[in-house]
Computed example of a mutant assay.
Amino acid sequence: MILVSVWLAPESVYPESKSLGKISFDPKPQEGYFQGWNYYYRDKDTILFATFLVSNLGPGTHNNGVSLYIKHPKLGTYFTTQEYADYDLIAKTGEFGQKSGDNKMEKKGHSFFVTMRTGDLELDLEFNASTQKFPIALSGGDIDLTPFNGFLRADVGFSRVPAKGQIRKSETTIDLNGLGGMEHLNTNLEVYKYSKSWEILRSFSEQGDRLNFGGFTGTDNYPNGFFKRISIVSNKGEEIFSGKVTKIEILKKTHNKFSGYDLPTQQKLTIDGEDSCTATITDTKVIGEINVLENISAVLRFFVRLFFAKPYQIHLNTSVVWDCVNSPIPTQTFKSGIHSYYLVNR
C-alpha cells in the first residue's frame, strides 16, 4: 500500500549530519524496514517505557503501533500493546512525529509530547529537552551491515531531561514529575538476520554528565560478533566522547529465571582509541520484565514466532565506572542508570 498522510504542524527537528542524530520518520521499501522511538521515564515511584514503532515486517507495509510499560505502587505492573495498519498511521517523511490510532508523539519548540490511549489507561507526558543541543548519533551514523545488504542507525534523541505529566486509570490518577529520555533505531534489514540481542544503557554522574551505551550481539555469521558503542554527553547537552567497543569481558553473570537467558551482571568494556578507556558496568536490581509473546495479538504472535524464538525485555538498575588513562574525562562513576536488554534469539 502507498502511505499518504499529513502530519499536523510538521517541523524540522534538528540540523542533520553524519555525526548528529537523525530521528525523523524515514520509511524504506525493504521488508526489513523498522523504526522505533523509545521513551523512558523515572521518578522515585515510577518506571515507564513508551514505544512507537513502524515496520514492514509481516503482512502489508508501514505496520505501526505502540507499547507501554508502567511499574508503580498504585498500578502494580502494567504492560499493553496496540497494533495498527498503514491506513491508521499519520506521519510525514523527513519530519518528526507519529500518530497511531489515538496515540501520538510530537515536538513543539523544545518539548516532546507523548499521548497514549490504551482503552483503560490514559498517559500524557511532556519532556523538556531545552538542555539537549541535538540528537546524538550513538552508532556514529549509518552503519553498513556487510556481509548483509542493509544499514543500521541508532540515536539518542535526548537524555535525562525534566519530564512531567499524568497517568489516569479507572479512579486512579498519578501525577508524574521526574526525568526521562528518548532513543531511536532505524534499520532496513530484518534484525533476526544479524542479531541475537540488543541493549541500551543510560546512566548519569553527580556532575550531570550522561553516559549512553548500546548496540547488538550478532548472529554467528556477523563479523566480530557484536557492534556496540559508548557516548558521553556533558551536563550542557554536548557530546564530549564517542567510541566503539572493541572488547567485552564478562566478569559475572546470572541466570534470569523469567526469560531463561543468562545475562551479565558485571562486564568490562574496552573502547577503541589511544586513551586506553574502559567502562565497567554493574547491573543490580531487576526493575522490569516483559514476555513479548504474552502481550500481543494472535496474528502478530504468529509472525513474531517465525523469526524470534524467545523475545523478552529485561530492565535493570545499573552503574558504570568510567576510567581513561590519557583522556581529559576524569575517572568517575555514573549512577542512577537503567540498563535494558531486548532479547531476540539465543
Rank of each mutant, 00 (worst) to 15 (best):
V286C: 10
Y342T: 14
V66W: 03
D124A: 07
Q132R: 02
P59S: 06
V54N: 12
L3V: 09
S336D: 14
S130R: 11
R160T: 13
S197E: 12
I200E: 13
N326R: 12
T254M: 13
V292G: 06
G208S: 05
F49G: 11
F127P: 04
I230W: 07
D43C: 03
N177G: 07
I287G: 02
F34A: 12
L176Q: 08
N177V: 08
E183K: 11
A163R: 02
A85T: 12
G260K: 03
E171R: 14
G119H: 07
W37P: 02
W7H: 12
N128L: 09
F216M: 01
F34C: 11
K71P: 02
E289M: 04
A85F: 00
N317D: 15
D120G: 15
R153I: 03
I250W: 04
V325P: 02
P264L: 00
D262G: 04
D272P: 05
G97S: 07
H255R: 12
M105I: 14
H184Q: 01
T93V: 03
S203E: 06
F34K: 13
F52T: 08
P162C: 07
Q98W: 00
G76S: 04
G150C: 04
D26S: 15
E106T: 14
L176V: 06
A279S: 10
N177K: 13
K18Y: 01
V233H: 06
S55L: 12
L57P: 02
T118V: 12
A154I: 14
G32S: 04
T93E: 13
Y342W: 05
S195G: 03
P15L: 07
G180W: 05
K71W: 01
L125W: 01
R305Q: 10
T46N: 07
G208A: 05
T81G: 06
K104W: 00
K268I: 04
P328Y: 01
S259A: 08
S100I: 05
I143H: 01
I2E: 15
Y33T: 07
V54H: 06
S195F: 03
S195D: 04
G214A: 00
F113I: 15
G76R: 07
P15D: 08
F241V: 07
L306T: 11
H339L: 07
G58D: 02
S205D: 12
K285D: 14
K253M: 01
N256H: 10
D88T: 02
L316M: 14
Y14A: 14
P330Y: 00
G32L: 06
F134I: 12
D155L: 02
T284H: 08
N317Q: 14
Y192E: 15
G58Y: 00
L123V: 09
